Simulated assay, not measured.
Amino acid sequence: MVLGHMDPVNSLIEIAGPLLLGLASGALFRKFVYPRVLARLGVLARWVTSAANTWVLGVHLCIALGVAAACHASNVVATLMWLHEHLPTPPFALTQELLHGFFLGATFFSGYYLAMFPSSDSEEEPASGTV
């Protein structure tokens, strides 16, 4: 199968699957694990819940979206050409299948990072006291 020629339904499923899985994983982490992590951090939890950390999360989201866009089947050939021209030769082969894996991973992390954004300013405060 050539990754560059996909019908629209498969392309939509391929994007929505990892994105929804990432959203679900991030939401479950945020609901069940994150409060415990904050409780264990104690006073250091302020750093994790700061506005600066939210900006860093936004940067990670932008990077994941950029990787997903660059490695999508519609851009994979151009991305491979750019990588071969601008990077030293890696110890492994850069293939369409490898970039397809990067696409799936980046799409998953895009959903995960979206779910990790705080929904309100007061959301972090009650969570830091739970065990």
Rank of each mutant, 00 (worst) to 15 (best):
M1L: 13
M1H: 10
V2C: 08
L3S: 07
M6W: 02
D7A: 03
D7C: 05
P8W: 05
N10T: 11
S11D: 02
L12F: 01
I13M: 01
I13K: 00
E14W: 13
E14S: 09
E14Q: 12
A16M: 10
A16I: 09
P18M: 00
P18C: 00
L21E: 00
G22A: 02
L23K: 00
A24G: 03
S25R: 03
A27M: 06
L28W: 13
F29L: 14
R30G: 14
F32T: 12
V33F: 15
V33C: 14
P35C: 02
P35D: 00
R36T: 03
L38Y: 02
R40C: 10
R40H: 14
L44A: 13
R46F: 14
R46P: 07
W47F: 15
W47D: 08
V48R: 02
V48S: 01
T49L: 07
T49I: 10
S50T: 03
A51K: 05
W55V: 15
W55E: 04
V56R: 09
L57G: 11
L57H: 13
L57M: 09
G58P: 04
V59K: 03
H60G: 08
C62H: 04
A64I: 01
A64P: 09
A64L: 00
V67G: 11
V67Q: 06
V67S: 09
A69S: 12
A69Y: 10
C71S: 15
H72A: 11
A73E: 01
A73R: 06
V76E: 05
V77F: 13
V77G: 06
A78L: 01
T79H: 12
M81A: 15
M81R: 15
W82E: 04
H84N: 07
H84G: 04
E85W: 08
H86K: 12
L87N: 05
P90Q: 00
P90E: 04
F92G: 14
A93W: 08
L94S: 02
L94Y: 02
T95E: 05
Q96C: 10
Q96V: 07
E97L: 10
F102K: 09
F102N: 09
F103K: 14
T107V: 03
F108P: 11
F108E: 05
F109A: 02
G111S: 04
Y112Q: 01
Y113E: 03
M116Y: 06
M116L: 06
M116D: 04
F117A: 03
P118A: 04
S119W: 02
S120T: 11
D121C: 10
S122I: 12
P126V: 05
A127F: 14
S128A: 13
G129T: 08
V131T: 12
